[in-house]
Design a protein around this nucleic acid. Structure first.
Lengths: 198, 198
DNA sequence: TCCGAGTTTGGACTGGCAGTACAACATACG
DNA sequence: CGTATGTTGTACTGCCAGTCCAAACTCGGA
């Protein structure tokens, strides 16, 4: 699995829609070759088969998310504000790449069995949240909770499932606006909670 | 796909661990036949191939969750209390069936392409939450939020991802206790939020 | 201009496995 | 009994991922 020439990489994206639609199993290597215009032999020359295609596509998306979230997380505002920014950032990237998202969900099992990707997912989605939660307690902008690990995982789940579900509905005319709308709803939930105040 | 005799049904569960471990693709029909002791021909007589096995197993788990959540949701306490009970109920069933959970995640894509199951998932996991949120506004135990659909989806995500992640760590000695612990963390998040007051 | 290393491609081939076909046998029930 | 329904072993088919290979093509350096 060497580095893929940019030209091939860009053409490979055309396979994402196919995989999102039918799953990796339902997608023949020959189909991928056809829609991307990259001959089968060339795909095998560069990539490790079908899994390799998936791995390349998702690895690429994870980089994008990691980048966007990284920027959001490293500002100098308080942790609460940065948490909100991180939510927006993650959702924006997800909604900008609905097909990749759907491919990700659809073949989650396979992804989970690609150790390299598992680590990347953890580092990209989960860890930044966990860190922000701790920083928020330190700077006083977030509450100390009894079980930070569980809470971090839940926050991660709230954002991710909301994003995936929105992405699954298909391409959006204005991903940024939809991301902002979703993020507002999620922030309202995870910051203020649902209980009425006594 | 007629109704499966109870004896076969119970033996089929032995396949769940296999599928959870390797994914449905990594699992040969002959492997399933071997671990369950049900001959291949018999499997095909009753079920619609590999997908049929998965569909049967997950359909069964969904029934369990639906039942437990249904009970929790239909008490006569206020909606906030019932929401907490529903969280516990869902997590309990999930942690009692870690292999089914893992099989579910692993082959989410396939599940999403089985229309019958998609509907069941929605009705089992998502709708009760959505309903409780509305009832809580009515009885004053939960806050009115700007975007109830997004919030319901996020709550669903928080519970489900926390449960799946716990289930993925393997079988638990005391699923009920762990479910209670997780549920406490999640309730703290979704009811009270993370923001500091003032 | 020529060389050689890396890349690209078509085409043919292999092996594994899902799913099918079917006949023989079991069991149940009127 | 006898008919319907379930159970099973075995043999077979067809599909498709992945492999192999030889012929071309690209391109930078000598």
């Amino acid at each position: 699995m060497r580095k893929l020439p940019a030209k091939l990489a860009s053409r490979l994206y055309d396979a994402a829609e196919l995989i999102a639609e039918r799953g990796l199993d339902g997608t023949k290597i020959d189909d991928i070759a056809e829609v991307t215009g990259i001959p089968k032999a060339t795909i095998y020359y560069h990539l490790d088969g079908k899994n390799g295609v998936l791995q390349f596509l998702l690895g690429d998306m994870l980089d994008l998310v990691a980048g966007a979230v990284g920027v959001a997380v490293s500002g100098d505002e308080d942790a609460r504000t940065r948490l909100q920014a991180a939510v927006v950032a993650q959702l924006s990237v997800m909604l900008e790449h609905p097909f990749l998202c759907r491919a990700l969900v659809g073949d989650l099992g396979r992804v989970a069995r690609l150790p390299e990707l598992t680590l990347a997912v953890h580092a990209t989605f989960f860890e930044p949240i966990e860190r922000l939660l701790a920083e928020g307690v330190a700077d006083g902008s977030l509450r100390q909770v009894a079980d930070p690990g569980t809470v971090a995982m839940s926050v991660f789940g709230a954002i991710t499932i909301a994003g995936l579900s929105a992405a699954a509905e298909g391409p959006h005319d204005d991903p940024a606006a939809d991301a902002a709308r979703l993020a507002a709803g999620i922030s309202e939930l995870i910051l203020d909670g649902l209980a009425t105040r006594g």
